[in-house]
Write a protein that binds this DNA or RNA. Sequence first.
DNA 1: TTGTATGCGTTATCAT
DNA 2: ATGATAACGCATACAA
Lengths: 358, 358
Amino acid sequence: METAAEDGTKARSGDSRVVTMREVAKKAGVSIKTVSNVVNDYEYVSDATREKVTKAIDELGYIVNVSARNLRRGQTGVIALIIPDLQLPYFAQLSSLVITEAKKLGLQVIVEPTLYSRDGEIAALHDGRHAMLDGAIFSPLELGQEDVAQLEVDYPLVLIGERIFTDKVDHIATENVEGAKRATGYLVQTGCRRVAVLGVHPGEKVGSAGLRFQGYKEALEENGIDFDERLVVPAGMWHRSDGVSAMNELLDSGVKPDGVVALNDMLASGAMHAIQMHGLSVPEDISVIGFDNSDDSQYLSPALTTIAPGLEAVARLSVKVLKNRIDGVAPFDSTDPVFRKVSSTLIVRDSTRRVIGR
Amino acid sequence: METAAEDGTKARSGDSRVVTMREVAKKAGVSIKTVSNVVNDYEYVSDATREKVTKAIDELGYIVNVSARNLRRGQTGVIALIIPDLQLPYFAQLSSLVITEAKKLGLQVIVEPTLYSRDGEIAALHDGRHAMLDGAIFSPLELGQEDVAQLEVDYPLVLIGERIFTDKVDHIATENVEGAKRATGYLVQTGCRRVAVLGVHPGEKVGSAGLRFQGYKEALEENGIDFDERLVVPAGMWHRSDGVSAMNELLDSGVKPDGVVALNDMLASGAMHAIQMHGLSVPEDISVIGFDNSDDSQYLSPALTTIAPGLEAVARLSVKVLKNRIDGVAPFDSTDPVFRKVSSTLIVRDSTRRVIGR
DNA sequence: TTGTATGCGTTATCAT
DNA sequence: ATGATAACGCATACAA
């Protein structure tokens, strides 16, 4: 790459400062193919030759021309990451991790926010731009059961996240039911008996709200605690202000919970605020647990106990599977789609009471 | 792009489903050059020819092979966005906007987080990978006055953000002094007379803390209010918990402020929490104003009045300047570096009292 | 206004 | 183990 031209014409036309394989070959006294072999870590190159070539490469400051390589290979080394919104902490964190993992495998990432639109998701999947991408990682939000056909694309695609509506595509899933179950179970362990849940989407089943709510119910059942409808508070959005409203509603209704499972950290943050505004304290009067382990959950007052969904593993696995599909190599070169569920972890901080008897 | 091969060998070798310009040319009964002309919106193509070609392109589903074009042009159509941390809301938002703007100009963006390391910033600037990028937008954090030489790179580079330590490089700056001045001035307009400031970095001048603190002082002076050292609270980090500590410190020290300028929204969020924990109310007892207009500032309780730094404009301008530098075209094809300051806006919400007399 | 021919830098096929 | 050479698909001199 060179400096922008200063005369208003095309840059980098004349000055051929770019070092090519040919020049390296000449300097090292070998053929261009040998240089290529060294650059691509071809096995059968004598140590002596390899050394000579490496030296020439260093001295000339040669770097491969990715465009030429891509043209020749029919690949680009670039993958797309299709997500609802880069500004949501959850996805910002995910993107950050995917970028890191991809870099390790020599892949670059184009982040493509669909901004909560079904059309945006479909466009991102079918856009002609995919002709220049090697594959994609897709976190669906709006696409539903009826859109399964949209996922049949002619390039390697890996699904990530909660929704499960097909077994035809590679999928790295997060642990929603189990995570919520763990959260709820932990509150019970600490002595909570009247555990409320915040952020439920009534009627929904396959989304994160539905799955997490299911985990909550399963935990109660396993612990022999009766389900109480009055402790269930819906919230369409999961922003902090929704947590405030939901918690206020609950407290003002007269039901007195001793624990709260918020379906994400923002709701938890809002809930703690509302509790404190009611003159109650967290965790002495009411324990609060969140979900996502968002970056600032540790900076809340008190620091939030929460469930970490294992985004690192999601990023690592999804990139690896995709890369294997692109290269057509093991271990993911079977025709069977990969399905993998990443386990969640409980992060204990100060918004929950200590476990009894410790 | 095609599906991953399923036999463990290289994908897309044999099946030549890829449509080339040659095929389009044949189908349209014109030369390959003419197709190229149409694809690249060359001016002098007769309408009839253009129509024929466009039709053939549609029917064949042709899309240009970007690798080939890049190889030929010596460009890649990809720029880097070098930022400290994608997980910080401010940078997540910025990235999102830059990606959007770049897309409009046909550019793709590789986001490169440097993770608060000076070495990371230097590496990002000088990495050999830049050979395959057309240019970069860089938001420095750790690099300082003594590193100016690091910015002399051989590719188009646009600086963004607060720190100003060279006039040799294109720079789109944000309005720190003016923004903080506006924030402080607004509190005074609403009747505040004892305005505290949270998050100051003592001794620092060129960073955002220094500049924003300067704005605070200038506003007091212009409004004829005495500067009171006891109302200045330092905070090394700008997380929510730092806001809590800083505000607690202030309130416990006995000084009674009637307004608080927090140097960012996180600090403001923490400050409101501390105020409310002290049994005081926002804005009745104390007004609070933040800085950054972060995505969730509107969801705090009460919704936060804050300063929006105009990130949209930063994104738009920086991408535009960079694109012009890459192409070597007007209006940014002069040899003089561009310097542009983006103005900030006051966003009035509920954490500040109403302006008197309204 | 359009066509012909050449080369961008690499990798892959065949030799040797 | 290494070399010669033909593509890959496109953009551009230059010619017509």
